[in-house]
Design a protein around this nucleic acid. Structure first.
Lengths: 352, 352
DNA sequence: TTGAAAGCGCTAACAA
DNA sequence: TTGTTAGCGCTTTCAA
């Protein structure tokens, strides 16, 4: 508090009765205005459209701001302008880098424009997702990114009423709720199955993370099975794992694969594919001689031995693209291309 | 919009001139009030203190809310109450699970109380951190968690003026800015060095992530060196790596370690320690016979062969504890214990 | 238990 | 380029 600029917010010289001031005691735009001898509006303009303010005023305002230590109250600004400059993203978990990276991509896309990112994790719960959607809409976020291609009826209703841009991530519904950034997970599964077929492996298996709301993994399994059938292979073994992130020991899985005489397996989780590979190796199984393994890409894919054949989905880019879409829409632009296919890479390495 | 409750926000029956309405067209508390035939204050009370509203009114209000599809505008509420129910956390990156997990822990600690989490990533930049602090304070977050024990003067000034609870994470400054949750990274380094000394290894090395603002890693190195000296060992080799997350090939490091005839190495990054172990193995180096390796814990520590001796820092719990501290302070409670040492585990396994 | 009035701190609309 | 005025939608204060 300098020079006695504002100490008490109570300006009621001779107003109403003795109502206690509700002021927060913090420096307001009004205080800056008084210090710079301009109106509050001019200070506001200086902050938002500096080019519309004269040089003399600008100089005094800038000085006043730093002198009184003014930090604009964005809450008040949001209420008045009906734009929060906050964007929300809902992911299942942040412990898995594949879901944390889009959050970072989103933030990077929006940072320059002064947006902040609210994050919510669902732990794969549909109910939590609905609650988050409501909470975020209540906070009047300017846009929202939601992991997955399915939205509950309740979420749809709330989002529709909010009339804000929405990006669905990781999947490409034929008719997105609003916009979608992702890829075909069915294609991913099919791509791996085709690779196995071409290599001549017949007895296949697929290990997926099966969670009711994790449709990405389910789609990959579906695509895998369909493609295997197309190639006239026997129906692959389908194995399910609850929480791939927590698997530290895949020896049971390895034993089961061996018992079933599986020749090639596709693991739809990055973490688990590496774990499985390492386990198979220490169980003395030749990879790919006895068992071929394909998984999802991680930093370890090229470090393990044999190196892992893996599908790479550009997680960070997903968030970046989602952010760019939101930015355009929040700027009032119409977006024609409502589905962005970010594709995937299939890196064939030694393990298959 | 049901039953004609509010369609246009312009209520100016015969007010002022012809000023265009600024209303957002969304359902407001007033619309619910009218539908339930109570005042707006009663609806507000029903939402915040349901026990203070009569049963008849409560019933009508509940019905009205769902009938008109009311989602309270938390921005307006925040402005009026001067509480945003938003907490911010600043981390270097979300791509590294060790930094993503505290975010999740924080969210889990706060969810039940209706708080949301704003996330900012700095990519280890001090300037970005300052900008984020300003932005978050501008949004009037009710509390803030900041990775690291050092705060710039600018950040301190802004935070002091904001007068909100602040938790520093991962380190335990002797005198925290406000509160701190973490552990002694010097102790971590010392613990590993002591272990090496006890095992009889003399020629040591430590590989750290050296980034000017990443003082955690630096402290671990410091502790390691000090303890080695205390045990009368020759000065360990110190090697630096720019971005441990991006290291996919540690063969250069392995070669250097061999050239320098290092007997035991401590790698202060989880990712890199596994990569180094795998690289050493494929280079035909016996672990721990020729080279002992200790690192930081990850899901792979027990999967690799030999299993990795590793320090486990409870990242998720760090965020959880930070959230609990904030919650107490935001509830107006005084917190006596301003430094929470979450400790660490040292899991000795086969690699040393 | 309920309601009326008065802001919270800012920006949009309008006027000069 | 600058200022004045009137809200944004809610909660707090005070009164009944």
């Amino acid at each position: 508090m300098v020079d006695g600029f504002r100490v008490d917010t109570d300006m009621s010289e001779q107003r109403a009765p003795a109502r206690r001031s509700r002021g927060t005691g913090r420096v307001r735009i009004e205080d800056v205005a008084r210090a710079a001898e301009v109106s509050a509006q001019t200070v506001s303009r200086f902050l938002r459209h500096p080019d519309q303010v004269g040089p003399a005023a600008s100089e005094r305002i800038a000085a006043a701001i730093s002198r009184v230590g003014y930090v604009p109250n964005l809450i008040a600004g949001s209420l008045a302008s009906n734009r929060s400059r906050v964007v929300a993203i809902i992911v299942p978990t942040l412990a898995n880098p594949v879901h944390a990276q889009p959050v970072e991509g989103l933030g990077d896309a929006l940072r320059a424009d002064g947006y902040q990112v609210l994050v919510g994790t669902t732990d794969f719960s549909q109910e939590v997702e609905e609650a988050l959607v409501r909470a975020f809409v209540g906070r009047r976020v300017d846009g929202i990114v939601i992991t997955g291609g399915r939205l509950s009826a309740a979420s749809r209703t709330v989002l529709k009423a909010a009339a804000i841009p929405v990006v669905q991530l990781w999947e490409l519904p034929r008719i997105p709720f609003d916009m979608a950034v992702g890829n075909s997970n069915i294609d991913i599964g099919a791509c791996v199955a085709r690779h196995f077929a071409e290599r001549g492996y017949r007895r296949l298996a697929v290990i997926g993370h099966v969670q009711k709301s994790d449709t990405r993994s389910a789609d990959r399994v579906t695509g895998f099975l369909a493609e295997a059938q197309r190639h006239g292979l026997p129906a692959p073994l389908v194995m399910e794992v609850d929480r791939p992130m927590l698997i530290r020991d895949a020896s049971d899985l390895v034993a089961a694969l061996r018992r079933e005489e599986v020749r090639a397996v596709f693991v739809t989780s990055a973490q688990l594919s590496v774990v499985l590979l390492l386990n198979a190796r220490s169980a003395g199984i030749a990879v790919p001689g006895e068992l071929a393994i394909a998984g999802l890409e991680s930093d370890l894919s090229t470090v393990v031995s044999p190196t892992l054949t893996a599908v790479r989905v550009p997680a960070y880019e997903l968030g970046l693209q989602a952010g760019r879409l939101l930015l355009r829409r929040m700027a009032g632009e119409k977006v024609a291309q409502k589905r962005i296919d970010t594709g995937f890479e299939f890196n064939v390495r030694e393990s298959t």
